[in-house]
Amino acid sequence: MGYMTICDQTGDCSTRFTSFLAAPANEIGDAMAGFAGSLAFIWIIVTVWLQSKELAAQREELALTRKEFSAMAKAQSKQVELLVSQGEIYKEEQLQRAQEAADKRFDQLILAFQEQLVTANLRWTGNVEFGSTVKIAFLYLEMRNYQSSSHEAFFRGVIERSEYVLNNLEDQITSTGITNLPSVKEISEPLKTLAAMIDLEPKMSEPYRIKFRRLRIELLNSLLNDMLLCEIWSPTQ
């Protein structure tokens, strides 16, 4: 458009660009100012448009980042729940193993206690004169007759014999002259086994704890300790 030819009333013709260059300086300045203003306005519009596009891209990126963080948070939460669940399972397995070991040890201690009472020399004997004859008087806590009995029958028998000995032995030693006394170690070893059972009871499974109570082990331990305090033992070890 700058090279289009225009003619004035006198017949002189020139291009727009030539006319622009021949114009007074103030007109050229005004034209350039108008052009620059338009260019600046266009540049502002373009800049705002580019910034809006950039802000839109940033908002979209932030939205994606939030979604990623949300997904990561959910994944971490599930991972924590899984770890907690695995920890509980591990604790339960450890407890079960410990209870199984305690139950097995309890069975071993029962057999050891039975063996100790079956083989122990727990007899109190002496010669007693009845007129012209001499008879042997004795009391015993041995459990040979219960060797093949069930656990409950065996422990019930030991409790009954212990109660009988406690109620009668000291009087019989005084009145009938029983002098042959068993060694104190014959009762101290079974007492150690009972103490081990009592220490083991909190670690056992519930069925075995019920069995522990049914055997009345704490009562038996009390009876044998009372018997240990009586003066009915030989001090030799």
Rank of each mutant, 00 (worst) to 15 (best):
F130N: 03
S149L: 01
N167C: 02
S132T: 15
Q147E: 08
V84Y: 09
Y90H: 07
Q99G: 10
A137P: 01
A112C: 10
T125F: 12
K104E: 01
V134N: 12
Y164A: 10
F113I: 11
V165S: 03
F106K: 06
S149F: 11
A98V: 01
S162M: 07
Y140G: 02
G87V: 14
G126P: 01
Y146M: 07
G157K: 05
N167R: 06
E93R: 11
R123T: 05
A98R: 02
I136K: 01
G131F: 06
L139T: 04
R144T: 07
L141F: 12
Q147K: 08
E129F: 15
Q96W: 00
V165E: 03
L117K: 02
E160K: 12
T125I: 15
K104Y: 01
I159K: 04
Q99P: 11
L117Q: 08
D103K: 02
T125K: 14
Q96C: 14
V158G: 07
N167Q: 01
A153R: 10
G87K: 06
A98D: 05
I89V: 14
Q94L: 13
E160L: 12
L117E: 09
Q147S: 10
N145H: 09
E100L: 05
L95S: 11
Q96D: 13
I110G: 07
Y164W: 09
A120H: 12
N145C: 02
Q116H: 13
F113Y: 07
R105N: 07
E100F: 01
G126Y: 09
